[in-house]
Each structure stands twice: as C-alpha cells, then as structure tokens.
Simulated assay, not measured.
Amino acid sequence: MPIRPDVIAVVGAGSVGSVTAWWLARCGAQVVWLAPHTGLERPASLASLGVLMGHCSRRLRGRSWRLRRASLALWRQWLPLLGPVPQQWGLTVLCHQADEVEWLQALAHQRLGEGVPLAWRTRDELLNRWPALASSNLQGGLWSPQDGQLDPAPLLAALAGAGEQLGVQRQSAQVIGLQPEGKNWRLQLQASDPDCPTTLLASAVVLCTGLGTGRLLAALDPAIRLNWPMTPVLGQAAELHCPMLPPQGLPGPVVWRGVHLIPRLQGQRLWIGATVEPGDQGQGQCFDQMLGLDGAAPPWLRQAQVLGRWQGVRARPMGRPAPLLATLASGVLLTSGHYRNGILLAPVTAAWTGRQLGFPAPDAP
C-alpha cells in the first residue's frame, strides 16, 4: 500500500533536499524541511558549478542515462514555476584525442536517433566562431543544446521561496537521531535557536543527507541501517578574470579536458572547476593543475587572475552506482550519494520520492 503520511520530514539543505521539499509540497504533502543554515561554509550544492551534463553523457543506455534524460526534461518543466533563475543552455564538450572522434560522432548519431539533439562540431567550425578554444590537438567537440548550467545560489533561493509559498515549514536544525515510534518516526533535532523544537514526529522521512546518512542511521535496527557506504570526494573551483579572453568569448559552458569553464554575466569572467580529489582536504597541486588544464591551458587562461576560490565535498557511493534511491524501511526513504550530479538529478529524485510516497503529480499550472 502506498504511504500517505500526515507530515513528511525532508532532511538536507542541498539541491536534492530543496527540490524534494518543494515538489512534495506541490503534490499536496505537508512538508517539514530540516535544512540548517551553514553559515560561512559552503554546502556541496553551493560549491557546485551547476553544470547539467545529461544528453552529452557517454552512457549509452541503462539507469544512469534514463535518470539524466528524465531529469533534464523535468528541469525544463519546473524552472518556469520557480521564477527567474540564471541559466545557460547549450554545452560544448571538447575532444582532444584523435582516437575518440569516431566514437563521439557515433554517440551524436545515436542520440539523434533517440530524438536527442546532439551534434558534432569540427575543429574548424569551433575555431571560426570561438578562437578562444584554440589548442594544438583540438579535434572538435560535441554540442548539446539542451544541456547547460544553473546558478546554484539563486536556484536554491528560488526553491526555498517557492516552497515557503506552498506551505513548506523550514527548520534550521540538525537531525541527530532517528527512531521508530509506532507507525511513525521520531527525529531528534539540534538547533542554535532555543525556540526550535527538539523533536519532530513524522509519518515519513526522506534522507537527502549525503555523508551524514550513515551516522544518522547507526542506531537503528541492523536490518535498516545504511549498508551502502559513501566516501567523500572533494572538488575545488574558482572565479577568474580573463582580460586576454578573445571578444567572441566561449560558446556557453565548456568542458575542456574534463574541466568546466562557465562564462559569467560580467565580461571576461569565468567560473572554473572542479577537481576530483579523494577525501575532504583540498590540495594545491590539484588546484594548479585545474587552472592550467593539466599543462594545456591557452595563453588567455594562463594569464587569468583568480578572484576567488572555494571547495565542496560530494558523497560518492562505494560499490553501487550513484545515486542511492531506496526505501530503507516503511516511511524511510534514502535519496543520497548523487556524487557530481546533485543539481542535475534533483528533479528525477524528487519525482521518484513522490511516487514512492503515493502522491500523484499535480496538474500542470
């Protein structure tokens, strides 16, 4: 039987928690969103660059490809409901290895057969329009008009505001305990605000809690503990001023040797990121390699000025594909471990959560 809870507790302040709280409220749920404000620290979603790599994924089939495609379609439907969110559509993935050209062209051909507008652009086509992309071994690139980038901070603010209008009750509290109580679940809360309650009784709990999930479930019965561990993977990013960037700029967000370059509204400014470093401590060497595109950066990028830098930690599942979507017990759902695709996959995760809890999708506005 589907669960129709009186109160749903959504735990987690990142993109997955934000989208899930908002979507469940749109579906008619009474939502308490436990999302502590993190002060000066950047949560993973705010440390993200917000790149949406869906259609240009190299996954030909399977779960990962289905989730990406479905989530991009949902973003297209849901973003107009959230008000103005800075967004850039159209993503270019550059190719610098001659032996990959044929495979990437075949990928573009397959996607077209599936109704996905993915195209191959030759080296000359790219450089004639965007000379900033010049490098000695550029072979061409994949152009994905329906992939892109969303600015994380305005996106999370828009979701919070839209959720509040729908009746989402946000509490800035940490969940430090979770115990069954009859058919419900008792959450132990910790907050700096003395007026914040110390417990919450919910009929269902949605855990969008990343690396903290295992600790939260540690006291539960072994049959419903988190048996799928996650490991931290750190990513560093920076904002650059590039006075030597050619006037044509970049063709929107670009993936260059695995590094993301995101044009900003201010001229000659870019975001660059992100490293993939095991653990939760950033290394200067990895940051420098990122800035230099591992020794292949063009002159305009090598002479860029770093205006600011930041880092965030992602949760990567060990031994299982990302993300983790599972019902751990009646009324306890796990939606975590999205690794580098939290913002991309947040809508499809929220939609899955709504279905698991028995809520039909609302009619389009």
Rank of each mutant, 00 (worst) to 15 (best):
L234Y: 03
L234S: 03
L211I: 08
R186Y: 04
L234F: 01
G177Q: 09
T198N: 04
T198M: 02
L201K: 00
P197F: 05
A157H: 14
L216M: 08
K183N: 14
I176P: 04
V233F: 00
S203V: 02
W228L: 10
L200D: 05
A191M: 11
D193R: 10
D195A: 15
Q171L: 15
A162C: 04
L178W: 09
R186S: 13
S172Y: 07
Q190E: 12
A160E: 13
C196D: 13
D195L: 14
S172R: 06
P222N: 10
R225K: 05
A173K: 13
V205Q: 01
A160H: 08
A202G: 09
L226I: 06
G212F: 00
Q188Y: 02
A204Y: 05
V205H: 02
Q171G: 13
D221W: 09
V205C: 05
R215G: 14
L178G: 07
V175L: 04
P232Y: 05
A204E: 05
S172K: 03
S192V: 06
G163W: 01
A218N: 10
G163L: 01
T209P: 04
L211T: 08
W228H: 07
V206F: 00
L217T: 13
L178P: 11
N184D: 14
I176H: 10
A158S: 12
L226S: 14
G212P: 01
A160I: 01
K183D: 14
M230E: 02
T199A: 02
G210D: 12
Q174E: 14
Q171E: 11
G182K: 10
L220Q: 08
I224Q: 06
G210E: 11
G163Y: 01
Q174I: 06
A223W: 02
P194L: 10
Q179G: 07
K183M: 06
V175T: 11
S203G: 15
D221C: 12
D195P: 06
T209F: 03
E164C: 03
G212E: 03
G177F: 07
Q165L: 13
R215Q: 15
G177N: 08
Q179T: 15
P222F: 04
G177Y: 09
V205S: 02
D193V: 12
P180I: 15
L220T: 09
L217S: 11
T231G: 00
W185K: 08
P194G: 11
E181L: 15
L216W: 07
A218F: 02
V175F: 07
A202Q: 04
Q179L: 12
P229N: 00
Q179F: 06
A191Q: 13
C196Y: 15
T231I: 00
Q188M: 11
L216Q: 09
L216N: 08
Q174L: 13
Q171W: 15
G161A: 15
A218D: 13
T199L: 01
T209C: 07
S172C: 11
L178Q: 09
L211V: 07
A223C: 06
L200C: 05
A202H: 05
T199C: 03
T213Q: 14
V175G: 11
R225M: 03
I224D: 01
S192Q: 08
T231Q: 05
S203Y: 01
A204D: 05
P222C: 10
S203E: 14
C208T: 08
L217P: 14
Q169V: 13
A160C: 09
L187T: 10
L159R: 04
T231N: 00
C196S: 15
P222Y: 06
Q169N: 05
A162E: 06
A202K: 04
